[in-house]
Amino acid sequence: MTDSVKPRGRASDKRRRLTAAAAQVLHQQGVERTTLADIARVADVPVGNVYYYFKTKDELVRAALSEHSAHLDELTGGLDELPDPRDRLKALVEAWVGRRETAVRYGCPTGTLAVEVDKRADGILDAEAGAVIRRLLDWAGHQFRALGLPDPDGLAVTLVAGYQGMSLLANALREPEIMTREGARLLGWLDALEAPGNPRGPGE
Score class of each variant (00 low, 15 high):
Glu175Thr: 14
Gly197Arg: 12
Ala131Asp: 11
Leu79Pro: 03
Asp13Pro: 01
Pro199Tyr: 14
Phe144Thr: 04
Gln164Cys: 09
Ala127Asp: 11
Ala103Pro: 00
Glu81Met: 04
Leu60Val: 03
Asp13Val: 08
Gly197Gln: 12
Phe54Thr: 01
Asp3Gly: 00
Asp38Phe: 02
Glu32Lys: 04
Lys14Tyr: 13
Asp138His: 09
Asp44Ser: 10
Pro176Leu: 05
Ala172Asn: 01
Ala20Pro: 01
Leu75Lys: 05
Arg62Ile: 00
Pro196Ser: 12
Thr35Glu: 11
Arg16Met: 12
Gly201Val: 14
Gly123Arg: 03
His142Asn: 15
Val97Asp: 05
Arg16Tyr: 11
Val5Gln: 07
Ile178Ala: 10
Val47Glu: 15
Gly203Glu: 05
Asn49Arg: 08
Ala146Ile: 09
Met179Gly: 07
Ala40Met: 04
Ala140Trp: 08
Ile178Cys: 11
Gly30Glu: 10
Lys119Asn: 14
Val42Leu: 14
Ala192Tyr: 13
Gln164Phe: 13
Ala184Gly: 12
Asp58Gln: 05
Gly107Asp: 02
Tyr163Gln: 13
Gly141Phe: 06
Arg62Gln: 03
Asp44Trp: 02
Thr110Lys: 08
Pro7Cys: 01
Arg100Asn: 04
Leu18Gly: 08
Leu159Tyr: 12
Leu173Phe: 13
Ala91Glu: 14
Arg174Met: 12
Ala91Ile: 05
Arg135Leu: 09
Ala170Val: 05
